[in-house]
Simulated scan of single mutants.
Amino acid sequence: MTRAEDARTTGGAGRRSAPATAVEDTLDLRLTEELLALFAADAPSAAGPAASALLDAPGSWRPATTSAGIFQLVPVRLERDLAVVTRWMNDPAVAAFWELAGPEEVTARHLAGQLEGDGRSVPCLGVLDGKAMSYWEIYRADLDPLARHYPARPHDTGVHLLIGGVTDRGRRVGTTLLRAVADLVFDHRPSCARVVAEPDLRNTPSVSAFLSAGFRFSAELDLPEKKAALMVRDRAHRDHL
């Protein structure tokens, strides 16, 4: 994969924002108190906040040893991380797909929608050997508007990502970290049988990165903001990859 291809993968693997006229967003499905209580009771650790109940607290997941180094997901803190995430969002290779270029207020609104939500989507920094170098969103795909467009199963977990620094592109780091994050989901979310993603169908390098990370192409989806490739990694096939 060339550096240019990896840059396109960086954007395409992430979440492309819906246009202002679109009605779907990650947080537009409201959960009742009864449903939240049910998810909390079903989670391995029901004593924590909503993020623990719905996503089994990604911030507590142990670091992963990869060929690129020691990798860990660290939940975003707005006051600490806004500047760096904003800088990444303004990288043309990222902005083409995430559509969040602009001042810090644009990024802050995007992050606040998750940080102040019910925990179905957790924004994280990807820290590699102590350096923050990527941005991730770990989310409950079965509770997301995405579930309207594919046969979702309970506890399906979705991922969006971007690789922040140019020096971290072009080394197949994205593929390595995609595999590591999918493994972390399976290790720490015992109820989850599938990790899913929906990169832009036109972004062949992005789809290729997911395939190299053990995902399979499942379907073409007509989403409000793009045609997407539904990529799925199955727990049942994990030991064969």
Rank of each mutant, 00 (worst) to 15 (best):
G165M: 13
L29D: 10
D187Q: 13
R3A: 06
F217W: 12
R109V: 06
E79Q: 00
L36A: 02
T65E: 15
H149M: 12
R16C: 06
A96L: 10
V195R: 11
F210G: 07
L54F: 10
A197S: 15
G119C: 11
W61F: 09
L230F: 00
S208E: 15
L161P: 03
R15L: 10
R87A: 11
P145A: 06
G69Q: 11
A141R: 01
E24T: 03
S212Q: 14
A53D: 06
Q72N: 00
V159G: 00
D42N: 12
A228F: 11
A83G: 06
A51N: 03
R169I: 00
S212T: 12
G126L: 03
E198Q: 08
E116C: 09
A46Q: 15
H160W: 05
H240A: 11
R80D: 12
G165Y: 14
R216F: 02
H160N: 02
V195H: 08
T9G: 10
I70V: 14
A132F: 05
G165A: 14
D142F: 08
R169L: 14
S67L: 14
R109Y: 04
E33V: 10
Q114H: 08
H237E: 07
L211D: 06
I163P: 00
A96W: 04
T10E: 03
V23Q: 12
L230K: 01
M1Y: 00
E24F: 04
S121D: 04
Y139R: 05
V85A: 07
T32M: 07
N90W: 04
F210E: 04
A20T: 01
V94W: 03
L146W: 06
A41M: 14
K226G: 01
I163K: 01
K131M: 04
L161E: 06
E5T: 08
V85H: 02
E5F: 02
D142R: 10
Y135Q: 09
L54A: 09
A7V: 13
R202Y: 08
V84R: 04
P49G: 13
L31Y: 00
L31E: 00
G59R: 05
K131S: 09
R30F: 13
Y139C: 06
H149W: 12
D144R: 05
A228Y: 04
E34L: 14
V196P: 08
T10N: 03
E137N: 05
D129N: 15
K227R: 15
A68Y: 03
V127A: 06
S121L: 07
G119E: 08
V232E: 09
A180F: 11
D200A: 15
L100G: 01
D222T: 11
A213K: 11
R140M: 10
A22S: 14
P199W: 01
R16H: 03
A53T: 09
P205Q: 07
S52T: 13
A20Q: 02
A219H: 07
D42F: 02
M133W: 00
D28G: 00
C124A: 12
P145D: 06
V207R: 14
A47W: 14
V74S: 02
A229I: 07
A141K: 01
T86D: 00
G69C: 06
V84E: 10
